[in-house]
Design a protein around this nucleic acid. Structure first.
Length: 281
DNA sequence: ATGCCACCCTGGGAGC
DNA sequence: TGCTCCCAGGGTGGCA
C-alpha cells in the first residue's frame, strides 16, 4: 500500500529515468475515466521533473504543443507499480508479469513507462498544470508535507483539537497532513503512545504525535518503504522497512515496548493494531 | 459543515 | 485438490 515513503522512493528512482524524455506514444486498458483519463494528451510532452505531494506523483510536462504545458498525475492506489522497461519488452515480461499492465507511455529513448495495477485503485491522468481538483479532489485539498517545515506543530495541534473524530481518522484524512496511510498511522500512534480511537488529543500528545509522524516517515523513506504485499520499487526491489514495523501486521505478537499482546481492531473503517497497555485514550 | 460508511476491485488466504 | 467466502485498502460520494 504505497504511502508517502513508498511514493517518495518511487519518485527518487523514477526521476533519473524519465526526466528530459518526451512521451511519443501511449497505450491503455479500457478503464473508468475517473481513474485513467486523458493519457493521449501526454504525447509530445517532455517530462520536466518528477515531484510528489502526499501520495501523488506530479510530472510537469513541457508541451505537447509549444506554450501549452501540461501535468501528468499518478496515484498508485493500493497495488500500483511503475517500471521503466526496454522497448523490446513492451509487455513487461522482464521482471514483471504482463498481466494487469494498465497504461504504457512510450518514451523517445525507446523505453516504456509502465503502470501495473492489479486492483485498479490507481489513477493516472494528464491535466492543465496545477488543475489538481480535476485530477483528484483530494490532491487539491492536501495538507502540509510532513517532512518539511510546512508541517507545523501549531497547525497540527489546532487541527486535532478542532475535531471529534478519532485521531487515526484524522491522520488518514489527507487534509491535516499529507501522505500518511494505514501502516504509518498505526506506527506513528504506537510511537506516540496514543490510542488510535482517542478523540481528545491535547497539546502534549499532539506534540508527541507530530514528532512520531516525522520520525516514522523519515525512517521508512530511509529504508525505501515497506513491502508488505504488492509494493515494489521501480527497479523491482522491495522496500526494507517491513522488519522495522512495531505494530502493523503484528497483532497477537508482543509489544516491543511493554511485552503486552498487540490487539487487532477496526478504527476509521481500517484494520488497526495497537497496544492496549501502552497506548492510552 | 462534519463524521460515518458503502463502494470500487481483485489476488490471496482461510475454511470447508 | 478445488471450491467458496472474505478481507485488504485510498479516495469518493452519499447519507444523517
Amino acid at each position: 500500500m504505497p504511502e508517502l515513503p513508498e511514493v517518495e522512493s518511487v519518485r527518487r528512482q523514477l526521476a533519473p529515468l524519465v526526466v528530459g524524455r518526451t512521451v511519443v506514444a501511449t497505450a491503455r486498458d479500457p478503464y473508468p475515466a475517473r481513474r485513467i483519463g486523458d493519457v493521449d494528451r501526454a504525447v509530445g510532452g517532455r517530462i520536466v521533473s518528477v515531484g510528489r505531494r502526499g501520495k501523488f506523483l506530479l510530472l510537469p510536462l513541457e508541451g505537447p504543443r509549444p506554450a501549452h504545458p501540461s501535468e501528468l498525475v499518478i496515484h498508485l492506489g493500493m497495488s500500483g507499480i511503475l517500471r521503466v522497461l526496454d522497448g523490446d519488452d513492451p509487455l513487461g515480461r522482464i521482471g514483471m508479469p504482463g498481466t494487469h499492465v494498465r497504461v504504457r507511455l512510450v518514451l523517445d529513448d525507446g523505453r516504456v513507462l509502465v503502470l501495473r495495477d492489479a486492483r485498479r485503485f490507481g489513477r493516472l491522468t494528464v491535466i492543465d498544470p496545477g488543475d489538481h481538483a480535476r485530477a483528484a479532489p483530494a490532491l487539491a485539498t492536501l495538507g502540509p508535507e510532513p517532512l518539511t517545515d510546512d508541517f507545523s506543530l501549531e497547525g497540527f495541534a489546532r487541527g486535532l483539537a478542532g475535531s471529534r473524530a478519532s485521531v487515526k481518522a484524522r491522520l488518514l484524512d489527507q487534509r491535516l497532513v499529507a501522505g500518511v496511510g494505514n501502516i504509518y498511522a498505526d506506527e506513528s500512534l504506537w510511537r506516540a503512545r496514543i490510542h488510535p480511537d482517542a478523540r481528545r488529543v491535547g497539546r502534549e500528545r499532539a506534540a508527541r504525535l507530530h514528532a512520531a509522524v516525522r520520525e516514522v516517515l523519515a525512517a521508512a523513506v530511509e529504508r525505501e518503504g515497506t513491502s508488505f504485499r504488492d509494493y515494489q520499487l521501480v527497479n523491482g526491489q522491495s522496500g526494507r522497512y517491513l522488519t522495522e514495523l512495531d505494530v502493523y501486521g503484528r497483532a497477537g505478537l508482543p509489544c516491543r515496548r511493554c511485552g503486552a499482546t498487540l490487539r487487532a481492531s477496526v478504527v476509521a473503517q481500517r484494520g488497526t493494531t495497537h497496544c492496549a497497555a501502552c497506548q492510552r485514550r
